[in-house]
Design a protein around this nucleic acid. Structure first.
Lengths: 263, 263
DNA sequence: GGCACAGTTCGGCGGGGGCCGAAACGAGCC
DNA sequence: GGCTCGTTTCGGCCCCCGCCGAACTGTGCC
């Protein structure tokens, strides 16, 4: 029977701080309320699964996403409307189809950052949980796209090669070197215009890989490299997911140009 | 699209067994479920307000955060436990106080990215909603900290000055130039060790400003500049928020060193 | 026109979770 | 020891929201 439990009324004569406001202005709305609204969009497993699927950079229909996430079409429709209203997705109607894709590369960056933190920052390693997941992982772990750039072991290997050959440098910040610019020109790989200016898309961007726990190259450079690899058939997509396969031609090209030997 | 393992909501001639799969394998758990778990932590207005407060880079007690967000101490305690379990916050107990702070700079970066997107990416401009908010904004709009670097008009002005003087460059990626390195050495401003290496903190980082809609300088360089400014009393904190005041000495120093005239 | 199919709207259901107050715990202080 | 006060745990309330099926709209195809 320890201490007397707080003589109810007595206590001190504290004027009972704004205890009023029984229910109305709940949220102090100090700051971060718009953060909460954005996070709420991603806090639902189904909506998160949609975003994950759309991280392949392509446009999906409402029905495809519904089947992917195993929910009724009506449910998917409502989720998509919310994601679009929140500015995360953009839609394009064609006939009786509703195609959706990530609204901007900035959304993809945001999702990648969040995913990378969630996968690695939380508790450290997280092995695959189901057999199907393990199988899918092994394919995606080798090579995959990460919205519009290369990831997986291939992405990391390319990033390492670029660094080791002095085509990009990170001593004082991540940037394309003079040699790198010449190399890009020699390969006829060109960066999209209007990048690097204040507010524009960064040219080189570290993107933490959730399988390799290493950085690969994103940004405009990552996009240009991935686009080139697909255009020149160095890699091709496997099925409808994000996994990639390196073609024989691609293996040769990567070896000759960057010294990358695909495992 | 080959066979759907479990045709959840497809055919319409379902025999109506008491709702097969009453509730079991709801989530496809394809991908993004860990993303959802992370986002759920930030999806609550109260937890978001906590994070917003902690973005000043300092440690707050549980009670302080409860009063800030206008919730009962018990509620705050539960929220903090969840945020800590999720790896977003770190705690330090001192006597009967529980101090919490953002777990790592990476968390701050994540929060800043999300906030910037939420404030500007959503619908474009968003004027202050309340009178108190407007007043607070005017102070913070001039100069404030953004976790560990400078933001607001001051932050943007410093970033512009660094660019215009060729101390940093972004032609091929954001990086400190040779001149910039010399300038930093001349001012006896030193970057923390172990930055810039793969996986480490980036040296220079664009951070979109939600008041100016312009980029300011984050990363290790932003942290070093902000620390220097506080150490040498060029700026000082106003009250307990994130707002800063430029001291007379600071005004002179900023003008001489960078040509920045504080408005 | 009629059918098939993609998507949407609506009503209703059920569970999760945020909130609070009451009580317990424990550190500091006299 | 006894008190204060910051924090935590627990029980209970209630609202929010994700889910579905059914009905509806509108497109494309015969």
């Amino acid at each position: 029977m320890p201490s007397q439990p707080r003589p109810a009324g007595s206590a001190q004569s504290r004027p009972r701080p704004p205890r009023s406001t029984p229910r109305p202005p709940r949220a102090a709305d100090h700051g971060g309320s718009s953060l909460a609204a954005l996070a709420a969009l991603l806090a639902d497993p189904t909506r998160a699964a949609f975003c994950d699927a759309l991280l392949d950079g392509r446009a999906w229909t409402s029905g495809e996403l519904a089947r992917y996430a195993r929910v009724a079409p009506s449910t998917a429709s409502e989720h998509l409307s919310r994601l679009i209203a929140g500015g995360l997705l953009a839609e394009e109607r064609q006939g009786r189809h509703r195609y959706v894709r990530l609204a901007t590369p900035a959304v993809a960056t945001l999702l990648e950052d969040l995913t990378a933190f969630a996968e690695s920052g939380g508790t450290g390693t997280r092995p695959p949980r189901t057999l199907a997941e393990a199988g899918r992982l092994s394919a995606e772990a080798r090579a995959r796209t990460c919205y519009d750039h290369l990831a997986g072991r291939l992405g990391v290997a390319v990033a390492d090669a670029l660094l080791n050959r002095g085509l990009i440098a990170e001593d004082t910040g991540l940037a394309v070197t003079e040699r790198g610019r010449a190399w890009l020109a020699a390969q006829a790989i060109e960066l999209p215009p209007r990048t690097g200016r204040r507010g524009g898309r960064p040219v080189v961007r570290n993107c933490l890989d959730w399988t390799e726990r290493r950085n690969h190259v994103g940004g405009a450079l990552g996009e240009a490299l991935c686009r080139t690899a697909l255009d020149r058939a160095w890699v091709e997509r496997i099925g409808s997911g994000r996994a990639l396969r390196v073609t024989p031609d691609g293996g040769r090209a990567l070896h000759e140009l960057l010294g990358v030997d695909v495992p």
